[in-house]
Computed example of a mutant assay.
Amino acid sequence: MVEQNKFEYQISAAISEFVASKKPTSKIVADLSPVIEATSELPLSNLEYWETFIRDQYDQALSSESTNKWKFWEDNSPRITLLDLCSWDGYRREKALRTINDKLPNRLFLALVVRRLNDWVPQVRKAAQDILANVLINSEPPYVADVICFTLSHWSSWKRIAPLNRMALLNTLSNKEIAKHIKLKLIHSSAGPLASILSEIGQIDVLDNSLEEIAANAVQPALRAKAYRSLLEGKVSWFAGREWEWTDKRYNEGRMKTLVAERPLATKVPLLPTLHLAANDRSSQARRVAAEILIKELNNLGSESLVLAEKFAQDSSSAVAERGKFALKKLAGDTTF
């Protein structure tokens, strides 16, 4: 909360300074750099809040300007700036997008441009789509990596973004520098829906060769588990939407069914060594994945099946131990389960 208050104060002061510099009586050339500097460290995780805050502060600063009411023939509407990416007015949001030539000054404004791909105004979405490729290519790779990770963690709820724009964002990862930053961000981050982000990236093969590194070194246990599952199953899967499924048409009953799409990995890894690595992972989530794969491959691993089953049966995690005991029963020919 203290940090948020600090950001709010800095942004409010920067916006006021910028608006004051735009007054006709000001001797200072209008410069957005104070706002850019004040917003450079904002966390994208709270993007919606900061978008609303910037919009409100900008509106308040503009309304406090003294205008000459007698010169009614003069156009007193403020000129379009990057701050209008947050405007309530769809026309101003579209114009703000059209004024962007190449790169964005920080990750916040880049995120706001990408967010406009899901705008409720079709013309704004079209403007964002028209500049998207150029903006992504010319912006700093770390900014692009952060914004794409943020977007991938939210876009399952974006209902207006076109499939073409989804793929355009994913295809940006074909840039090796951006892909490297994405990989490092996944490995070193400890919080967030990283496993979901990895799943979404899995729609293309850009990180296929990095899955072993992610599985071995990622800080977040859920991400290591996801990487091991993809490696051991030889495929990657992701959320592909929902569709209605009837359970009983006579009574007009049904439910929404989750759709999952999948793609085989471009690279294959040896099953047994990878299974041993997962079985010795420090997280029970990864060990549980290994135990599940063991049960599926029980008849294909020779004597190692028994070794791994006994190891899992003694695991400190009850979920892993259950699967280990189940594997032992299957090896013993027990058919009572």
Rank of each mutant, 00 (worst) to 15 (best):
Q4H: 10
Q10L: 13
A13Q: 09
I15R: 00
S16E: 09
V19Y: 09
S21M: 10
S21V: 03
S26D: 03
I28Q: 11
S40E: 12
L42E: 00
N46W: 04
W50K: 00
Y58C: 06
D59A: 13
S63W: 06
K71A: 15
I80V: 15
I80W: 03
L82P: 02
Y91F: 12
R92D: 07
R93G: 07
R93A: 03
R93I: 14
K95R: 15
T99M: 14
N106C: 05
N106W: 03
L108R: 02
L112M: 15
V113T: 14
V135G: 12
P142R: 07
D146P: 01
S156M: 13
L164T: 13
N171Y: 09
N171V: 00
I178M: 06
L184K: 12
K185L: 11
L186P: 00
S189F: 05
L194T: 06
S196D: 07
Q203W: 05
Q203V: 08
V206N: 02
L207W: 06
L211D: 02
A222S: 15
A227W: 00
Y228I: 04
Y228G: 03
V236C: 11
W238N: 00
W244G: 01
K257T: 01
R263K: 01
K268R: 11
L271N: 06
A279Q: 02
S283H: 02
R288G: 11
A290V: 02
L294W: 00
I295S: 14
G302I: 08
G302V: 02
L306F: 05
F312L: 07
D315Q: 03
S318E: 12
V320G: 00
A321Y: 02
A321W: 03
R323I: 11
G333D: 06
